[in-house]
Amino acid sequence: MNEARKTQHTLAMTIALISWAMLFATLFMGYAIYRSSANVWPPMGFARISLVLPTISTILILISSWFCYQMKLDINRGQVAPAQKNLNLTLALGFAFLVTQTLLWRNMNHSGVYVSSGIFASIMHAFTWIHAAHVLAALVFLVYLYFQFKRHAGNADALWMKTENGEKFWHFLGIIWILMYFILFVF
């Protein structure tokens, strides 16, 4: 692919990710305000969310990011077949992440943290929903990439742009999740 075109894509994706980062930054800012203005956190009547499921989610998304990175390296080297394997693994781990998120929501509901039971529950549910919605969208894109890999099996160059952008977005969501993990669940 043309070098100048690559620069354009890198630049545009960077700007787009800055935009997205602002969206999540706003959420975190809101969180900081709610948390710092509350006397106790979690508020009276709520327990901390168990760390088991969030930790599993974190591990899943971290490993998936690693495979995703390998996939990009393969494409850069012009090897579509190994990239395909790494893509499959990324996809599988990504869906597993969504499953753990669903379990997390169920878990929260079981322990009385319903969406509508105040600000703590609102944050825990809504922020993870918003992130999960992005993960879902990214997975849809990765599935599309899966078919593109099939179609352009012999032509890594044609796949460069989509792989590169998809990979960046995936890492971005990983980073956001890790921030959420530490800020919402651990800290």
Binding site: I18, S19, L23
Partner: peptide, 24 residues
């Protein structure tokens, strides 16, 4: 590019308050 997402986050939370029962 920098500030529209801020409003985006705001209206998402407002929409959730309206339809999903959150209390932001």
């Amino acid at each position: 590019a920098i500030f529209i997402p801020v409003l985006g986050a705001g209206v998402i939370l407002l929409t959730l308050d309206r339809v999903a029962g959150t209390t932001f």
